[in-house]
């Protein structure tokens, strides 16, 4: 089991998800369709989880290292976040969004196949590796979703009327996403202490992770103070996502990051 089997698994999952989406969004309120849709989405998720597990076993290391491998985790977590959000708050459009994004990640991986990459440098061989990265991925998936909600809110604000629920959904996603972001940051610090001797060295990657954290912190406090204001927090949340993207992708291109110890994936 390795990346050569990926197209098969990815196609199966995507197909199940597309069917699930159609059922879920079928006009008219039919409980049976909704349930069937959710079951299909969950089945697609199960297919991917199978692939992930088999890949992990085959690689003999957690598949959390290359960008392609992280994309795979996003493709698992996004639908998961989508289903949970749907069950909790009932937003159908959100499930659709999560699934489309997951399919996008799968397609990127299909177009940029990865070869057999089995090595894991000693610093990455730690019990912290898996929790640190998974918590981060989960948090990024939630925060990305919150920013999309913010963009939707801005659209409503400028062209329609802002629905209060839009901001509430954004808040919920940020709170949960932020708690995971905090955990990711702290696990990272604890791990760095074991691996490199210090928990915080202001390495570029750490610096940008911290900035991302601060950006969401600003949003949260802004909201507590003046819950009636809408425009500024919506913009803040959209901007916070830009910082997050820099931290995630841009870091490899920043001049100050050329000697970062945390830039692995070429």
């Amino acid at each position: 089991m390795n990346w050569t089997n990926f197209p098969f698994f990815a196609a199966t999952a995507a197909l199940l998800w597309i069917l699930g989406m159609i059922l879920l969004n079928f006009p008219g309120k039919r409980k049976a369709f909704e349930i069937a849709g959710n079951v299909l989405i969950a089945a697609g998720l199960a297919v991917l989880v199978c692939f992930l597990t088999l890949l992990w076993i085959n690689l003999d290391r957690p598949p959390l290292r290359t960008l392609g491998e992280t994309r795979l985790w996003y493709a698992v977590f996004l639908p998961l976040v989508g289903i949970i959000t749907f069950l909790r708050w009932g937003y159908k459009w959100f499930v659709t969004y999560a699934l489309l994004l997951a399919i996008l990640f799968l397609s990127i991986n299909y177009l940029h196949p990865e070869t057999y990459e089995k090595t894991l440098m000693p610093a990455l061989q730690s019990v912290w590796f898996v929790p640190h990265v998974i918590v981060y991925i989960f948090s990024y998936a939630l925060l990305a979703a919150s920013s999309l909600v913010a963009v939707k809110g801005l659209y409503e604000l400028y062209f329609k009327e802002l629905d209060v629920n839009t901001l509430h959904l954004a808040d919920n996603l940020v709170y949960i996403g932020f708690s995971f972001l905090t955990l990711g940051l702290l696990f990272g610090a604890l791990w760095a202490k074991e691996a490199w001797g210090h928990y915080w060295t202001w390495d570029p990657k750490e610096t940008w992770a911290f900035l991302t954290w601060l950006a969401y912190l600003i949003y949260m406090h802004f909201r507590t103070f003046q819950p009636k204001r809408t425009k500024a927090p919506l913009w803040t949340l959209s901007l916070a996502f830009v910082v997050l993207l820099i931290c995630w992708f841009g870091i490899n291109y920043l001049p100050s990051a050329q000697n970062s110890v945390h830039v692995y994936a070429q």
Partner: peptide
């Protein structure tokens, strides 16, 4: 102990950290 003071402190800190992130130390 108010949020505006907190936000100004966090933003200022963020700005300095941003400089730290861009300027080679």
């Amino acid at each position: 102990s108010s949020v505006p003071c907190a936000i100004s402190a966090i933003v200022s800190f963020a700005v300095l950290v941003l400089l730290l992130g861009f300027i080679r130390q």
